[in-house]
């Protein structure tokens, strides 16, 4: 177990194993997203109240799932980096942050677009919208903090601490925003019609969620690999690797 973790911590070993894993996740991501969106957009029945506009759910919900999961995995990677000094964990965390921010933005934007036909407005200070907006700010804070340091080691550790502080605060923020919303606005519009969704509507949603997760894993592996090459550029194994590839190309 420990030997495995320590192996995983070595950038060289991770570079090798991720090369084998990466294609599978890409294949899964493409298959799931293509089939999920075809099914969801073309074949799933229209909602009896919202008509076709409900189909935004097939982008909105997976993006929102991912937005929250990425922050948690970023904080876990930060913890792993801080406790065991595993550099790969920090590289992965650094590569995850922009994708997480992008997914939060996608969730917010698709929610806004969805709001026009259903609520008649682009933005409402709804509890979920508000906590997603705060999550976006938390992401931007982590990215900005990492960018502000000149020393990479300090940047990594500072971003890890901030990610962990953020992840402790996310549930607190979520519950206080829920409380705030119920105090200020009686539930006028809610989107809690999920349980009554028929199977042919939620099954494509599950496929889309799985597809988005595969995409996240595949993209993180790919970006972490290039980050490994960038940070380890002066290491011998990278030199050997590049040499071998150059030879092969000849």
């Amino acid at each position: 177990m420990w030997a495995f973790i320590h192996k995983l911590g070595s950038p060289k070993w991770f570079y090798g194993i991720s090369a084998k894993l990466q294609p599978w996740f890409w294949v899964a991501a493409v298959l799931l997203i293509v089939s999920g969106s075809l099914w969801g957009l073309a074949f799933a029945p229209a909602d009896y109240q919202q008509g076709n506009s409900f189909r935004i759910i097939y982008v909105h919900v997976p993006a929102a799932f991912l937005a929250q999961s990425i922050f948690i995995s970023m904080a876990v990677s930060g913890l792993v980096f801080m406790v065991w000094k595993i550099k790969v964990a920090d590289m992965a965390a650094a590569m995850m942050a922009p994708l997480g921010a992008a997914m939060t933005f996608v969730a917010l934007f698709s929610g806004a677009v969805w709001g026009v036909p259903t609520w008649g407005t682009w933005w409402m200070w709804d509890a979920r919208l508000t906590s997603m907006l705060i999550l976006l700010f938390l992401y931007l804070g982590v990215i900005a903090l990492r960018g502000a340091f000149t020393s990479r080691d300090s940047a990594s550790r500072a971003a890890s601490v901030l990610a962990m502080v953020g992840v402790i605060n996310i549930p607190i923020i979520k519950y206080s925003v829920d409380w705030w919303y119920t105090l200020h606005q009686p539930a006028s519009f809610t989107l809690t019609s999920r349980p009554t969704m028929p199977t042919e509507m939620w099954l494509p949603l599950v496929i889309m969620v799985l597809g988005f997760y595969s995409f996240f894993i595949a993209l993180t592996l790919m970006r972490t690999r290039s980050e490994i090459l960038r940070r380890e550029a002066s290491k011998r194994w990278v030199h050997d690797l590049i040499k071998a590839q150059v030879e092969e190309a000849r």
Binding site: I134, F137, L138, L140, G141, A144, L145, L162, V165, G166, N169, I172, I173, S176, V177
Partner: peptide, 10 residues
Amino acid sequence: SLLVLPLYIP
């Protein structure tokens, strides 16, 4: 302020 303000919301 960018780091701290979101955490101030609760």
